[in-house]
Design a protein around this nucleic acid. Structure first.
Lengths: 223, 223, 223, 223
DNA sequence: CATGAATGAGAATTCATTCAT
DNA sequence: GATGAATGAATTCTCATTCAT
């Protein structure tokens, strides 16, 4: 199996950026951490500032208010993620390979930046701004891309054509999503913590894709 | 296929209960609605009271404080759900049938009481009390039960034995979960809105179980 | 000269009012005092609350925010004042008598409730709401009424017809206004403080009306 | 009638001044504008800086703090005004002529620099420093000078001696003051806006002095 | 001189919780 | 029980002032 395409997920500031953009970024990084821990409403600006190592008043030099911080997180992080996803979808590889890449992308994003994913998934959908069409459409794009992969696989005869691709899409993403959530929430024990979780995630991606493609039923059980 | 075991999900108050228990229940119902909409931290006691149609001071006759409301929600609603789940697991039916029952249980719970599920899944894990072992164990119980169904299926040779049952379990539940979330968030268009969504949910459950058991890959594609 | 019509200027709460209205009134009374002393922007909600003898949080039970307090002051106090003014204008007495009544009304209002006048005149015109047509119109009404008195006097031949009634109106009111301001600011010494200032104000009203009607020029000096 | 002595009211910087004094002046000009619009407390240093077209940090090179800006405004602007007033009072012309000159001075000051007058009259009296004897005395000087003109006119027999000169003084100034305020607030319609308001102000000064000296009462109406 | 990032005291506002009625 | 007035701690947000560049 080919190398898994990884998203580049910069956290520390890029030295080529302007100092202003850099500080903005530091605040966003801090905000993501704090929001992931306590939720948007449960987080105080002062928590974010402390996490970023700055005075809280400074936050207001860079962001109009708390809500704008959340919106900025969404715009920046989601874009990074969606771009990587589009890259996978545009490859000319079999559906199975593409789905594995998507799984790896999602799992790696969650493994490397669990806070990003938590905030993107949980907080944003509850914010007032999320009601705006722009944001919802952004989420929809995600399903569009995965749905496109599945539909193309159906057209090529690689995937069963008798199943609704939209359901297949959400089932696939949901399987990945909860797999990682349960890891994050420690509902499942991971043994190889020493390896940074990498092996477990590798196995997880393979297993989920395997189940998703070939089913959990024993050989010859297909109805 | 046998009848789907449904959880009884009472919302309006049971007339056999004491007036006190009745009022308590009304507050919990209201709190679930409000928490689901704005999150725990984003909800005010006065919002809950207004939703329940009572004065906000009265809330404190029935609950010590805001946090206790959340804890009560968890205890009551989760218990109802887990009990139904145990019922399914203890049946002596094939794994496929059991998994379909679980899917129907979860989907129906989400369909009929989406607020319950949102609060149980999103809010509780973030509350302070959730850190307490009791609550975490409760969530774990859920995975335990589904895991047990899968393991038993593997032992009986109905399900593939080469896959980690814990991963299979979370993948299965996650597939169901996001399928409904995307419905709730309107990320997916449902055509038969006229039927109250019942048909779509029926099909959804069947499709998810189908994919989960037999895979999305086209016939003969199993590696 | 007939008795001077006085405005009834209740400050202490009317016992026939509801307790709620009563408390609201107490807050408005306190706010007027504080605004008059430090200006709207220079006043803190906590100052108002302390002056009213309540916790500052309670202010927000009765008013949405600070600005609404100012608006309420305007609506209530200005109405009281304008009503008294209309009463004078509708009398069938000579212009001289009416103008004296107006002078007495304004001076008494200022003498008895200097804070009302300061806030109505100085703060309101600077508030954002004042830009709204409604408020400006309210101020305009005041000039309308006094202007009407003067015009009627001109028509009856009691007052000179060769002078712009609008200018006469503002000159008259301005004369009264600064007379009292200088008192309030202690730019002028008042001797009979013992009498509560009543005599001085009586003389002031008479003198201003005298100058305004008959001029300061010595006998026979009219050009 | 002789020429009206006008105050020279420089706004743009005097090129003979040092660059430092020039920048200081620009800040003061900006501050006056902003204070007149929103009041001292309602104005931010950054508003002043933006109005002056400089960085807000620079304000602190020229002024110790916000309050010193207000004090500087008072010292400079008030001195200019008082000097012109003294010039009028020291002339050996009839009281009527002097009063007309004073009216013209005040009206022109208001017409040309309404912001100056607003700030001098409204803000300064409320500032902490105003409580200091120096500032209060400064205001008193104004009344002293006008009072001196009136008293001299009384002594010469040009003005009635039976009226309190202090009251006459404040009434006169107040008449002028409100006449212009009502213009500024657009409470009165001015027709000749095309002429820059000059004609209206000319007429206004004449009318106010006329009323003030000869009264509004119709011929022969003096009691 | 000039700039604007950085700081943090201070004020407005919110809302959980208490309590008199 | 029921109500909503009252309290004040906690939080968001503002802005005067300082200071590194």
């Amino acid at each position: 199996m080919t190398a898994v395409p990884l998203v580049s997920l910069p956290e520390s500031s890029d030295p080529t950026r302007s100092p202003r953009a850099d500080k903005r970024e530091r605040i966003l990084d801090a905000a993501i951490k704090v929001f992931a821990r306590h939720g948007y409403h449960g987080s105080r600006i002062s928590d974010i500032a402390r996490e970023a190592g700055i005075a809280y008043g400074l936050v207001y030099h860079y962001f109009k208010n708390k809500e704008e911080i959340l919106a900025s997180i969404f715009e920046q992080r989601w874009g990074v993620f969606l771009e990587a996803l589009e890259g996978i979808a545009s490859e000319e590889t079999p559906a199975e390979q593409q789905l594995f890449s998507v799984a790896a992308l999602i799992l790696n994003a969650y493994r490397l930046r669990p806070d990003w994913v938590k905030v993107l998934v949980i907080e944003i959908q509850r914010s007032a701004r999320f009601a705006e069409p722009g944001q919802l459409r952004a989420f929809g794009q995600f399903f569009d891309v995965v749905g496109r992969i599945i539909r193309r696989g159906q057209e090529r005869g690689e995937l069963r054509g008798d199943l609704d691709p939209r359901i297949a899409c959400t089932a696939f993403v949901g399987a990945l999503e909860l797999s990682i959530t349960s890891l994050v929430l420690r509902l499942v024990e991971v043994d190889d913590a020493g390896s940074g979780g990498g092996e477990y995630y590798e196995n997880l991606a393979r297993t989920v894709v395997d189940i998703f493609l070939h089913g959990l039923a024993a050989e010859g059980a297909r109805a």
